[in-house]
């Protein structure tokens, strides 16, 4: 597990232990990857971050068209692995979480402990650095910057 901000580490470690998730990615809605577990290549993180953000953006737009409340969670359940994707609010602004889990755990456990992760992050977040406005053109720059930090290149 690698995190850009230290205060994220303990809540995320607890989540990983409790949920038995295989892969986890936390990122801001502007594209900055905050923490990751299970990825070995920055290219994979970049793809997953972009695709995850895209899926959530699509479902949000779908909800808007249907006149429904925003859809914060998307689950793709496969035979071998499942993907849990959720947007959530933190004291640092809106973040996205992407979790890949296998048959050693269940959607119920991932959902349960992800809710606790969100709560733990809210409690652990330092007070400074208010959320700034998110611009679409910043997404790639933020993503590349955070990947360099996480993977050291």
């Amino acid at each position: 597990m690698r995190a850009i901000e230290r205060w994220v580490e303990r809540p995320l470690e607890t989540f990983l232990t409790e949920s038995a998730a295989r892969v986890t990615l936390l990122m801001t809605s502007s594209g900055q990857v905050v923490a990751q577990h299970g990825f070995t290549r920055s290219l994979d993180v970049m793809s997953a971050a972009a695709l995850g953000a895209g899926i959530l953006a699509s479902t949000a737009e779908l909800a808007r068209i249907m006149g429904a409340r925003p859809l914060d969670t998307v689950v793709h359940q496969g035979t071998a692995v499942g993907v849990y994707l959720a947007g959530f609010e933190t004291p640092r602004g809106r973040w996205l979480g992407l979790v890949v889990f296998g048959q050693e755990t269940s959607l119920g456990l991932v959902q349960l402990f992800f809710a606790r992760l969100v709560s733990d992050l809210a409690q652990a977040a330092p007070a400074e650095a208010p959320a700034r406005q998110v611009l679409a053109e910043d997404f790639e720059d933020e993503l590349n910057s955070s990947l360099r930090t996480l993977f050291g290149r």
Binding site: G108, L109, L112
Partner: peptide, 9 residues
């Protein structure tokens, strides 16, 4: 939700 998840586990 918590009971369900943990009981199934």
């Amino acid at each position: 939700d918590a009971v369900a998840a943990l009981a199934a586990s």
